[in-house]
């Protein structure tokens, strides 16, 4: 479970010293067995939110807990409880897939039989047999993404973060990523999913937070967002929430 209360992040620009509020008083809850989506345009504050929740960035204000641990005072426990995956597979090119997994297994405290069992599990689950001993630099994008997923779940974390995991992927690989997320949800994981792709949101997400300029503009399920905005689909609901709906459309909606 993830809970944030008034979570904020302010950056000071290196040149000029201007203050930029990247995340502004965000309060959300994400629950086990559900996919919580942070939906927003580029620069909306989605990645900053995930970075704060994964303890890489310190919040400027508010508080948050991840898997019951405070992100400021219990950073190490938070990090041990999460798996993080982005569109960049973040693999080491000069290591084989198996070496990458062994390395991260070690970092997450897995060793001996426990490590071997988890390696067997992820290799079988993600069908890495054919290329696990290949250098990551020599793998196809799809293969890299599967190893990256394996790395994310190797230590069996209760919380999973996905930051635009399908960006730049072909349809087939994107499909397998989404299937994996669906299966993780069915296993009771708490999942936070950042994206700006509406079709993925409609397919995967149970709860959605529309984030824009660091602020939450709308919160609820797809149906709730459509109903609250009076729009026929999620895309238009989103556009209205982020003030990007063409003005004549807005007038039309108001007239209806």
């Amino acid at each position: 479970m993830i809970r944030t209360e008034g979570l904020s992040k302010e950056f000071v620009e290196a040149k000029g010293g201007n203050r930029v509020i990247a995340v502004d008083q965000v309060s959300i809850e994400a629950h086990p067995g559900r996919v919580f989506c942070l939906l927003g345009v580029n620069g909306a504050g989605k990645t900053t939110m995930l970075r704060m929740l994964s303890t890489v960035l310190k919040p400027s204000g508010g508080r948050a807990t991840v898997a019951g641990y405070d992100i400021v005072t219990e950073g190490e426990k938070v990090r041990a409880s999460i798996g993080f995956m982005s569109n960049s597979t973040a693999l080491y090119g000069r290591l084989t897939g198996l070496e990458v997994l062994e390395y991260f297994g070690g970092l997450y405290g897995l060793a001996g039989k426990q490590l071997k069992d988890r390696l067997d599990f992820v290799v079988n689950k993600l069908d890495l047999h054919d290329f696990k001993d290949r250098l990551c630099d020599k793998m196809s994008t799809g293969q890299k993404q599967r190893v990256s997923i394996a790395r994310t779940i190797l230590h069996d974390p209760p919380v999973l973060f996905f930051d635009e995991p399908t960006a730049g992927l072909d349809v087939v690989t994107s499909q397998s990523v989404m299937e994996f997320i669906e299966s993780s949800r069915s296993q009771g994981k708490t999942i936070v999913y950042c994206t700006h792709i509406m079709s993925e949101v409609e397919r995967l997400c149970d709860d959605i937070a529309v984030i824009h300029e660091g602020k939450i503009r709308g919160l609820g399920s797809v149906d709730q967002l459509k109903a609250s905005t009076g729009q026929p689909n999620l895309e238009r609901a989103f556009l209205q929430l982020v003030d990007a709906l063409p003005s004549n459309d807005k007038t039309l909606v108001e007239a209806v």
Binding site: S86, S88, A90, G93, L107
Partner: peptide
């Protein structure tokens, strides 16, 4: 540069 640092820093290693 290769975006691997974030993944490493997100691990529970001090």
């Amino acid at each position: 540069e290769r975006n691997t640092l974030e993944t490493l820093l997100i691990s529970p290693v001090p």
